[in-house]
C-alpha cells in the first residue's frame, strides 16, 4: 500500500467513516473526567453509551454529555444490560428519539454469569431493527454460522466476543474469529474480553476491522495510559496486517549474507 492510500485506510461502518479503528466504552471509570481523558488519549472517534433513567431528584450531578461532546465524538447507543429483545428494541428506539442516532449497537444477553449473548433473540432483534431503518452493529458469539446469519439479515457490523465481557482473557478462539473475518463482507469488530493492548494487536493482525474496549482500559491502574497503549496496539496490528507478515519457518535463515565471510 502506498503512503497516500495508507492515510485513507478508514473504517467504514454503514455510512460512517472512522480514522481510528478503536471504539471505546464509557463505563466503569472513576469519574467523567477520567472517562474524557481516556477517550482523548485513545484517539477513538466513537464511544459506546448506555440508556438509563434520569435521576430526577439529583439533577445537579454531572452528566456524560457535559464531558464528552456528542458533536465531536460519535455516540454509539448500546443495549448493555438488556436480556430480552423487547427491552433492547425499546432502548434503541428511545436512543434514536433522543438524538436521531441510526447507528446503534445491539446486545441481547442470555446469561447473567457469563453475559453470553442470546443469539436467537439477537437475530430476531436485528431483523426488526433493520426493518425500522437502524444501522445495527451486533454483539455476538464467535460462531461463524451465526455471524453469517447476522450479515444475511442486514447487520452493519459483526461484533464477535473475544471472551466474556469484562473477563480480560483475550481472544479464546482465534480460528473462529479468522473464519468470521474471512467470510464477512461487513466490518468485523472484536468486542468484549480483550485484556491488554497486545490482545488488540492480535485481533488486528488477524484482519479484524476494529476492536471495542471498555474494561481493559477502565480497570487498568492507569486508564489514561492504557488508552494510549490500546491506540498504539490497534495501529500496530493494523499496519502488520496490511504489511503482510513473513512466512514462519521451523529452521533458521541467516539475516547476513554468507558472501565475503572472513
Amino acid at each position: 500500500m502506498e503512503e497516500d492510500n495508507l492515510k485513507k485506510d478508514n473504517l467504514k461502518i454503514a455510512n460512517i467513516k472512522l480514522k481510528s479503528r478503536l471504539i471505546v466504552g464509557t463505563g466503569k471509570y472513576k469519574n467523567f473526567k477520567e472517562t474524557a481523558n481516556a477517550i482523548k488519549e485513545s484517539g477513538a472517534e466513537m464511544v459506546t453509551v448506555a440508556v438509563r433513567r434520569i435521576n430526577i431528584l439529583d439533577k445537579n450531578k454531572p452528566i456524560l454529555t457535559d464531558y464528552i461532546d456528542p458533536k465531536k465524538i460519535i455516540y454509539l447507543p448500546n443495549t448493555a444490560g438488556c436480556f430480552t429483545s423487547e427491552d433492547a428494541l425499546r432502548t434503541l428506539r428511545l436512543a434514536r428519539e433522543m438524538g436521531g442516532w441510526k447507528l446503534v449497537k445491539l446486545e441481547v444477553l442470555g446469561d447473567k454469569k457469563t453475559l453470553y449473548p442470546n443469539m436467537i433473540e439477537t437475530v430476531k432483534s436485528t431483523k426488526i431493527l433493520v426493518k425500522e431503518g437502524f444501522n445495527v452493529m451486533v454483539y455476538c458469539t464467535d460462531d461463524p454460522l451465526l455471524a453469517k446469519k447476522l450479515e444475511d439479515v442486514g447487520a452493519s457490523a459483526i461484533m464477535p466476543l473475544a471472551s466474556p465481557i469484562g473477563s480480560g482473557l483475550g481472544i479464546l478462539n482465534k480460528v473462529n474469529i479468522s473464519i468470521i473475518v474471512k467470510q464477512s463482507k461487513v466490518p468485523v469488530i472484536v468486542d468484549a474480553g480483550l485484556g491488554t493492548a497486545s490482545d488488540a494487536t492480535i485481533a488486528m493482525e488477524m484482519g479484524c476491522d476494529g476492536v471495542l474496549v471498555n474494561s481493559a482500559i477502565a480497570n487498568a491502574k492507569n486508564p489514561v495510559l492504557m488508552a494510549r497503549s490500546f491506540k498504539n496496539g490497534v495501529i500496530s496490528g493494523r499496519d502488520s496486517f496490511l504489511a503482510g507478515r513473513m512466512k514462519k519457518n521451523i529452521f533458521a535463515t541467516a539475516s547476513s549474507p554468507i558472501d565475503g565471510l572472513i
Partner: peptide, 28 residues
Amino acid sequence: AIVPKSNYKKKYLKNNDKVEVVHFIGGG
C-alpha cells in the same frame, strides 16, 4: 409509547400515567 420531541407540548398527562425520562450514561 415513545413521545416524539415535537409532541412534548401537545401531550397532556392524566392520573395514573407512567412517564419514563431517559438519557445517555457511561456504558460498555
